[in-house]
Write a protein that binds this DNA or RNA. Sequence first.
DNA 1: GGACTAAAGTAGACGACGTCAACATTGCTC
DNA 2: GAGCAATGTTGACGTCGTCTACTTTAGTCC
Lengths: 239, 239
Amino acid sequence: MTKATTSADPRPYHHGDLHRAIVGAALDVLSESQSTEFSLRELARRAGVSHNAPYKHFADKRDLLAAVSAVGFELLARQMADATKEHDSPRERLAAMARAYVRGGVNNPALYRLMFGGYLSGQDNGRPTIERTAAENMKALLVGAIRDGALGRLIPNSAANTHQIDGAILIFWSQMHGLTLLLVDRLVGPSEKTDDLSESVLQGMLDGLANSIPSLPPGVWIGPPPADSMVETVNLRTS
Amino acid sequence: MTKATTSADPRPYHHGDLHRAIVGAALDVLSESQSTEFSLRELARRAGVSHNAPYKHFADKRDLLAAVSAVGFELLARQMADATKEHDSPRERLAAMARAYVRGGVNNPALYRLMFGGYLSGQDNGRPTIERTAAENMKALLVGAIRDGALGRLIPNSAANTHQIDGAILIFWSQMHGLTLLLVDRLVGPSEKTDDLSESVLQGMLDGLANSIPSLPPGVWIGPPPADSMVETVNLRTS
DNA sequence: GGACTAAAGTAGACGACGTCAACATTGCTC
DNA sequence: GAGCAATGTTGACGTCGTCTACTTTAGTCC
């Protein structure tokens, strides 16, 4: 009976959904302060909870950051998917995706940097699973658009074409990723022209891809690394 | 006379060149731990100096990080310049630059992330001067290669062509920057194929640029933002 | 319906960190 | 050779991530 359990106590001992509340607070802080260096304790404070409560939901700070990052990937994928809905031609769908992608990064640089900045992906134990699947989903969107003919011709989903599609995706993704980060880091600007820049960079890229899609060297992967490439870093002491 | 000043004391009270020593220690830690989260105190320890000595040479941690980042830019520019020396054709010079650029990032991800990661460029008071000039130098290298005909034709240095060159640089830079970061974040791999990937991505890009160099929208800048674009964020209380 | 248990939250401690202020030592200048 | 500015040291403060031990609550089983 340390605190009165009077009828209208607004704060019960148990929060109810602290996991979601903490992630939400992190997203808030991220977009308010635009800095990736916030403290776990502040998130707890915002959620109206003791500084140690989050540890019941996240193993450590990195774990929390991974959850936030995963939400970021989902958000971005949704924005890209939504953007394509308004268009029919594959070319325009891809362009809309590009705009949405770059815009997503520019609108919330801190979140984008968290997603791609590599607090995660530290070589000790690769990118957390929750994040990997979110990133995979995003990649699937691109595959669709390119296969449907964004490059001026259909690319049926055969084994041979897989390499072509991967080549195109690599170019597209790295181009947009690079543009986004240059904008975010203010090495290119101004960011009000984000859409124009996306469009002209995309145009230059498509001109190249329409002529020849470079075939990637064998053994290359795009997206989160395949599981077998991490065998040596996995915990082997389960035997 | 707190400590004996005996003849062969290996550590004099004054270090001699602590500034350089600290930056050097930071570069060491960065490439050893591959984490951008090292402590000022550890650098001091490595330099064999009290935890507060660095403050006589750097205003704060951010200031130190900026110095390290500037060295990173200089290093990268040197590697790019060296790489071009072995080649005559503009196309090959640009390709060598691309390889050197991507390789530089992949060989020291933590440093590359520090350079572009945005501890700096926080919107409070833009990127530190020391870094800006280093980044400008790097950009100048690209301008040279592209002007000299890397796209298959000479682009004389006229005012009209400036926009074309900037368009080409934007595409080139964001493409290589994006590829580098995808490799660094292990979203594309394996990194042993860095050179192959650089080459095929470069090829796809040049095919596009050879056909049409997109003209950038007016008012766009590439490289560190022009001084006048930051007027509003500058401290105005000096009046 | 009441005891038991596991989940969820709290309290307090620890060492490390960035930074500040006060002090000590040294090298340079007139 | 005195004085001063530059450089280094010591100790302190508040904050952080994380650990351990304790308390409160919700659900389950007889």
